[in-house]
Design a protein around this nucleic acid. Sequence first.
DNA 1: ACCCTTATGCGGGGTAACGCACATAAAAAA
DNA 2: TTTTTTATGTGCGTTACCCCGCATAAGGGT
Lengths: 239, 239
Amino acid sequence: MPSPHNPLQNCLLAALPADVFQRLAPDLELVPLKLGQAIYESGGRLSHVYFPTTSIVSLLYVLADGASAEIAVVGNEGILGISLFMGGETTPSRAVVQSAGFAYRMRSRLLKEEFNRAGPMLRLLLRYTQALITLMTQTAVCNRHHTVEQQLCRWLLLSLDRLPTQSIRMTQELIANMLGVRREGVTEAAGKLQRAGLISYARGRIDVLDRPGVEKAVCECYGVVKLEFDRLLAPLPES
Amino acid sequence: MPSPHNPLQNCLLAALPADVFQRLAPDLELVPLKLGQAIYESGGRLSHVYFPTTSIVSLLYVLADGASAEIAVVGNEGILGISLFMGGETTPSRAVVQSAGFAYRMRSRLLKEEFNRAGPMLRLLLRYTQALITLMTQTAVCNRHHTVEQQLCRWLLLSLDRLPTQSIRMTQELIANMLGVRREGVTEAAGKLQRAGLISYARGRIDVLDRPGVEKAVCECYGVVKLEFDRLLAPLPES
DNA sequence: ACCCTTATGCGGGGTAACGCACATAAAAAA
DNA sequence: TTTTTTATGTGCGTTACCCCGCATAAGGGT
């Protein structure tokens, strides 16, 4: 019986040409990611990069006073550790597991070597990075102009897109940390969505009952990001 | 008498090894950038990339309802058009001239060719892009957690860092557009700073009188960004 | 069964920022 | 000059969100 885990569950790894993938495959190591685990800390060096398959990881920025905000989210469509190949080695943000699951990791040195071949891996990672930039900037705009309810919808949809189920295991408290708002604000917004029949939740679990309904309640930010990911991570062009 | 304009006024161009710069120099074209001019529009293709020398350009995101927010600012430390080499060709944001001045522009194809040599230009541009990512994410966090006054200070300091003078030509109305707040909010914050003797302003002109004072009033976001730019754009390492 | 930790519900008071309307004053245009 | 446009000042009611405290209830562990 084959393992239910496969590196190709990660879109980036799956998008690599077969010869590149074969070169890297021996070094890919399956690791479980536990809820709340910090993959890397602000300013820390990266020994590995991670390709999530069934897990979701949030990039969080934590202010000096403890307040925080999610600046991006990475699931099976992406990679953790872009600062490695961008040249900076570190970033001023934390990466925290938002949904437990698995990821394949690879030693930083190997990824860097493959990146420096300036072949498909480089092009793929840069396109992904651009999609990530769109996600980050849209988060900035959303933080400025949209209500907690709209942001919650955006967050739910972004999470759902990275999960095989319609159910998210996450407390309102943690969601509040990510959105950078109060827990009560999330309670209120979630209550409203539940009364409208769009979601159903209880103690650390949220089920999206009516996804089209949530898509109607969300701000334009979600659509912009989704479109950009689809566009940029579509089958790799020649160039 | 030599022209007062020189491509090396742009930090990125200045950081290139002499041989690379010589290869590109013939294609660098000096262009004036007028206040309010759009260098590129959301989703538009880029025929050129721009290296500002004495101008400042804002990257703005405009929502469907007309509300807007600045997501980054580019001056003589940077380049406009990163989506070109990142592989996406377009971005969902606008680039608007915030402070009139000059820039050198280069045909996109040439930059791409140089980038694809996978040499110093690639490393330099990727490091710059990472610094830009830090600026964008810090903007997201700042939007969420800090007051208009703090954000105004951040904006003033970021602008000042990219100008040779202590004086900024810009109306409160336009600053409000950038920060994504009401004009009255900027009036109030600016009035407070003026009463405190930190700045002095009148009809489209702001003078920073006491920069250390403004640095005390700003949130941590400014320092984080500044540090990261200094770190990443320091003399190019070998790698 | 029991506790006890943890997740959610709820209310009251406070504040930053919004939207709007309008006053004033400086520049630009006539 | 006069007129018009543009930039800034100001007040007022409204709203979304914050901060704090506490009530309630659902799980998990023993």
